[in-house]
Simulated assay, not measured.
Amino acid sequence: MKALSPRGEQIVDAAIELLSIGGIPALTTKNLANAVGVTEPALYRHFKNKMDILEAILIQQEWMVRHRFERYAEQGGSVLDQIEEVYAGIFRGFADNPARSAVAFAEEIFRQDSHLAEHFNRIMEVAEENIIALLASEQGRKECRTDIPPKDLARMMMGSSRLLVTRWRLGNYNFDLEEQGARLWKSLRTALAPYPGPNA
């Protein structure tokens, strides 16, 4: 899919907001046109149909995940610092735009279509692959415990972070996600560190 125009981005943002409020039933061309302030036919100048909009949301989400990892990888340095920065950015992004969290962790929205479901799964794979690569790198093996496979460590990080965001959403955003995310990462960082041994 080609890069979105400013209007296309506005339509995608409005679609995310509608999905976060009412799920797929709320994402109608009438609701979307009203939210954006255009006529229904005007929507089709940017997207072929509703599935095209849903795919654009997923493409945007995948780009953001890739961009976060690439951005901090360029800085080099500590592997754990890089992962911490990625997750701090995720928590900060969701805190700034709660509607996006409802879509990012709502696979049921995309499960209706096999192509969309596959794309949604790919986003999680991208995050997992990047974390595994960092943990399995020479620097990662120095900083992190090696008695647990990198894939399992990556899933521990992803699963606990996903649980935190889900609790935040279901609790109607009733706690500071960035603060709780930082506390979670501090615990994860301790758990990831090499075991010092009984005599350390």
Rank of each mutant, 00 (worst) to 15 (best):
E55F: 09
F120H: 12
P196R: 05
M157K: 09
K151T: 13
M64N: 12
E84K: 07
N97L: 10
I21T: 11
M124G: 14
E74V: 07
L135M: 02
V36T: 07
L184K: 06
H46Q: 08
P198L: 09
E118D: 15
K186Y: 06
M156E: 05
L170D: 06
I21G: 03
K48R: 14
I53K: 05
M64C: 03
I24S: 04
P150Y: 03
K151E: 12
Q180A: 08
A26E: 14
A106G: 05
Y173G: 04
Y44G: 02
M51W: 10
S78K: 09
E143Q: 05
R145V: 03
D147I: 08
I131R: 00
Q75R: 14
G37W: 12
P149Y: 00
R183Y: 10
W185S: 02
L177S: 06
E179S: 06
A106F: 08
D147S: 09
F91T: 06
L27W: 10
D96Y: 02
I11W: 01
M158Q: 11
E85A: 15
F110S: 09
A99S: 15
K50F: 00
R155P: 05
K30P: 00
E138C: 02
R92V: 04
L27N: 08
D96M: 02
L134S: 13
G37H: 10
S20M: 07
A102H: 15
F91Q: 08
N121Y: 07
A15C: 06
S137I: 01
V126E: 00
P149Q: 02
R71G: 02
A3F: 06
R100S: 12
E9F: 00
G89D: 12
D147L: 03
R155G: 04
Q60G: 15
E128P: 00
R92E: 11
K151S: 13
Y195R: 13
Y87C: 04
F69K: 11
D113P: 05
W63N: 13
G159Q: 10
T166F: 12
L184T: 04
D147Q: 03
N199I: 08
P150D: 05
A35V: 09
D52N: 11
N34Q: 14
I131A: 00
Q112T: 12
N172I: 09
E107I: 15
K2S: 12
I148V: 14
M64T: 11
N49D: 15
L192M: 03
I57E: 02
R162N: 06
E55G: 13
L134A: 14
F69E: 11
F120I: 10
P150S: 08
H67G: 01
Y44C: 03
A95E: 09
G77A: 10
